Simulated assay, not measured.
Amino acid sequence: MDKEEFKKLLKNANFSKKSFASFVGLKYQSVNTWGNNNRAIPYWVKSWLNLYIENLKYQKMKDILKDSGVCKE
């Protein structure tokens, strides 16, 4: 994953680099250097962000169903 894709995924997940770092328990300084020079973005970040974004979509659907009375959970 390149730096631009990382930025796009962060945006889609409603994260800044700082909020993402805090959420996953990393130092902001580490996350901020990803994609710069020889600092590769860790392999797990793309799949983690994609799953997080997918979960946001399901959570929105669940909330809509709950509000409409279709789902009680």
Score class of each variant (00 low, 15 high):
residue 1 M to P: 08
residue 1 M to H: 10
residue 2 D to A: 07
residue 3 K to E: 13
residue 3 K to G: 02
residue 4 E to N: 12
residue 4 E to V: 09
residue 5 E to N: 04
residue 5 E to P: 00
residue 5 E to Q: 06
residue 5 E to R: 03
residue 6 F to A: 12
residue 6 F to K: 07
residue 6 F to H: 09
residue 7 K to I: 12
residue 8 K to C: 09
residue 8 K to G: 06
residue 8 K to Y: 10
residue 9 L to S: 06
residue 9 L to P: 05
residue 10 L to S: 08
residue 10 L to V: 10
residue 11 K to V: 08
residue 12 N to Q: 14
residue 12 N to S: 12
residue 12 N to E: 15
residue 12 N to I: 05
residue 13 A to L: 07
residue 14 N to G: 05
residue 15 F to R: 01
residue 15 F to Q: 01
residue 15 F to G: 01
residue 16 S to D: 07
residue 17 K to V: 05
residue 17 K to A: 09
residue 17 K to Q: 15
residue 18 K to G: 04
residue 18 K to S: 13
residue 19 S to R: 10
residue 21 A to E: 00
residue 23 F to S: 10
residue 23 F to A: 14
residue 23 F to Y: 15
residue 24 V to H: 01
residue 25 G to P: 02
residue 25 G to W: 03
residue 25 G to H: 07
residue 26 L to V: 05
residue 26 L to T: 03
residue 27 K to I: 01
residue 27 K to C: 00
residue 27 K to H: 02
residue 28 Y to P: 00
residue 28 Y to Q: 05
residue 29 Q to C: 08
residue 30 S to G: 05
residue 31 V to L: 04
residue 31 V to C: 03
residue 31 V to S: 02
residue 32 N to P: 01
residue 32 N to I: 03
residue 32 N to C: 08
residue 33 T to R: 15
residue 33 T to L: 13
residue 34 W to D: 07
residue 34 W to Q: 04
residue 34 W to G: 03
residue 35 G to M: 01
residue 37 N to D: 15
residue 37 N to C: 07
residue 37 N to L: 10
residue 38 N to G: 13
residue 38 N to Q: 11
residue 39 R to E: 12
residue 39 R to S: 12
residue 40 A to R: 06
residue 41 I to V: 04
residue 41 I to P: 00
residue 41 I to R: 00
residue 42 P to Y: 00
residue 44 W to N: 12
residue 44 W to V: 08
residue 44 W to I: 09
residue 44 W to Q: 12
residue 44 W to F: 14
residue 48 W to C: 02
residue 48 W to T: 03
residue 49 L to K: 01
residue 50 N to L: 15
residue 50 N to F: 04
residue 50 N to K: 13
residue 51 L to C: 13
residue 51 L to W: 05
residue 51 L to D: 14
residue 51 L to E: 14
residue 52 Y to M: 03
residue 53 I to V: 03
residue 53 I to K: 02
residue 54 E to Q: 11
residue 55 N to M: 03
residue 55 N to D: 07
residue 55 N to T: 05
residue 56 L to Q: 15
residue 56 L to A: 08
residue 56 L to N: 13
residue 58 Y to L: 13
residue 58 Y to R: 06
residue 58 Y to D: 11
residue 59 Q to P: 01
residue 60 K to A: 15
residue 60 K to V: 12
residue 60 K to L: 11
residue 61 M to P: 03
residue 62 K to H: 11
residue 62 K to R: 14
residue 63 D to K: 15
residue 63 D to E: 15
residue 64 I to G: 05
residue 64 I to W: 05
residue 64 I to V: 13
residue 64 I to C: 07
residue 65 L to H: 08
residue 65 L to Y: 12
residue 67 D to R: 11
residue 67 D to I: 05
residue 67 D to H: 08
residue 68 S to Q: 12
residue 68 S to W: 06
residue 69 G to S: 11
residue 69 G to L: 09
residue 69 G to E: 11
residue 70 V to P: 04
residue 72 K to F: 08
residue 72 K to M: 11
residue 73 E to I: 13
